[in-house]
Amino acid sequence: MGILKYTQYVYILFAVFFIYDGIMKLNEGNDNSTLSFIIAGLAIFMFFFRRKFSKKFDDHNKKQ
Score class of each variant (00 low, 15 high):
I12K: 14
N32T: 09
N27C: 04
F49V: 07
I38T: 14
G41Y: 12
D31S: 08
V16S: 14
T7V: 13
F45H: 06
L42H: 04
F57P: 00
S33H: 12
L26D: 14
L13M: 10
V16C: 13
I39D: 11
H60K: 12
Q8E: 13
K52T: 12
I23H: 11
S54L: 12
F45A: 14
M1A: 09
D31G: 02
H60L: 07
I44E: 11
G2M: 09
N32H: 11
G2N: 09
D58M: 02
K52H: 09
Q64H: 11
D58H: 00
M46G: 03
Y20L: 07
S33M: 13
F47R: 00
I3E: 09
K62P: 01
F53R: 00
F48Q: 02
V10P: 03
D31E: 10
G22M: 13
G41F: 11
L35S: 06
R51S: 09
L42Y: 11
A40G: 06
G22S: 08
V10W: 14
F14L: 14
K55P: 01
D59F: 05
I38N: 04
T7L: 15
F14H: 03
D59M: 08
T7E: 15
L35H: 09
I39C: 06
F57W: 11
I23D: 06
K55W: 08
L4A: 07
S54F: 15
K56L: 08
D58S: 07
A43L: 05
F17R: 00
A40H: 13
Y6R: 10
F14G: 08
L4P: 01
D21V: 08
F47P: 01
V10F: 04
Q64W: 03
F14V: 15
Q8P: 00
L4Y: 15
A15I: 09
I38H: 09
Y11W: 15
N30S: 10
G29W: 01
K25Q: 07
Y9R: 00
K52L: 15
Y11A: 15
T34R: 05
I3L: 01
I38C: 10
F14Y: 03
M1T: 05
S33D: 09
N61F: 06
G29L: 03
S36G: 03
I39F: 10
A43P: 01
N27E: 11
D59Y: 07
S54C: 01
V10E: 08
Y6I: 12
I39Q: 06
S33V: 04
F37P: 00
F37S: 03
A43I: 04
K25E: 13
M1E: 04
K63C: 01
Y9W: 07
F57K: 04
Q8I: 15
I39P: 03
Y9G: 02
Y11T: 15
F14C: 06
A15T: 12
K56A: 13
D58Q: 07
Y6D: 10
T34H: 08
F45I: 10
G22C: 13
Y20K: 00
K55H: 05
L4Q: 06
S33W: 15
F45T: 07
E28S: 02
Y11H: 13
L13V: 15
F45D: 08
I38L: 13
F53M: 04
N61P: 01
F37R: 02
Q64M: 08
F17K: 08
D31N: 10
G41A: 14
D31C: 03
F37A: 02
T34K: 12
L35F: 05
I19C: 05
N30K: 02
K5W: 13
V10T: 14
D21Y: 08
N61D: 12
S36N: 09
Q8M: 14
